[in-house]
């Protein structure tokens, strides 16, 4: 809750004026796309039954978006409010501080609660881990890391001719029980049906 509040609280601090200039166009588009994805993606009932519950967009890792969400932060998607949560990347679970563990658990819970989870490039190394974390939780994983789809991610941003494109892993989507509309699929530059190579592993 407090994290939520904090997350909510933090973001406005980013000066708006400079939002456009500091945040690259790319991430503006990606932010818009992110929002748009939500329109073409259906979550299962248990995830999104209650209309009062907002759609949570989590950003894990170092947020490249900056103030990109600023213009659309009050926009509703499918009638629901959209909440942006920022998470820190998964830490190594070396020492388990009880307090940290609880915090961690809480954060994981929070992460799992997201509808959309954007995994930032900063989490490239922990990609699989992060994906696996939410793979049972009907989370639409989005990233712009290369090989994201092979790692089990669902939607991956790619750049083509200065234009932001994306590719989709339908298997992953199926696994996550997230239904991706054909329209979206059509627009994807590449649609793969690939189990993650590390599936068995995890």
């Amino acid at each position: 809750m407090i994290v939520l509040a904090l997350a909510l609280f933090v973001t406005p601090f980013v000066p708006k004026v400079r939002a456009d200039s500091t945040v690259s166009r790319e991430y503006q588009v990606k932010a818009a796309f992110l929002y748009n994805f939500m329109n073409f993606v259906d979550w299962p009932e248990e995830k999104s039954s209650d209309s009062n519950e907002p759609i949570i967009v989590g950003i894990i890792g170092s947020d490249p978006f900056g103030g990109a969400f600023e213009p659309v932060k009050n926009k509703k998607v499918k009638g629901k409010n959209v909440v942006i949560r920022r998470f820190e990347g998964l830490k190594e679970q070396k020492e388990s501080d009880e307090k940290d563990q609880e915090e961690l658990n809480q954060e994981v819970e929070a992460i799992r609660e997201c509808h959309v989870l954007f995994i930032c490039r900063s989490e490239e190394k922990k990609l699989k881990k992060t994906i696996n974390l939410v793979k049972e939780n009907n989370v639409l994983t989005v990233s712009d890391i290369e090989g994201f789809l092979e790692a089990g991610g669902i939607i991956n941003f790619v750049m083509e001719d200065q234009k932001v494109r994306f590719e989709i892993n339908v298997t992953a989507a199926k696994r996550a029980k997230v239904k991706i509309r054909s329209q979206l699929l059509r627009l994807a530059k590449r649609v793969v049906e690939e189990e993650s190579s590390d599936e068995a592993k995890n």
Binding site: V29, N36, N39, F40, L187
Partner: peptide, 15 residues
Amino acid sequence: AENCKAALAFQDAQD
């Protein structure tokens, strides 16, 4: 419009 929704949303003019 419906069919172009996604394309427009995702700036896919070709589509």
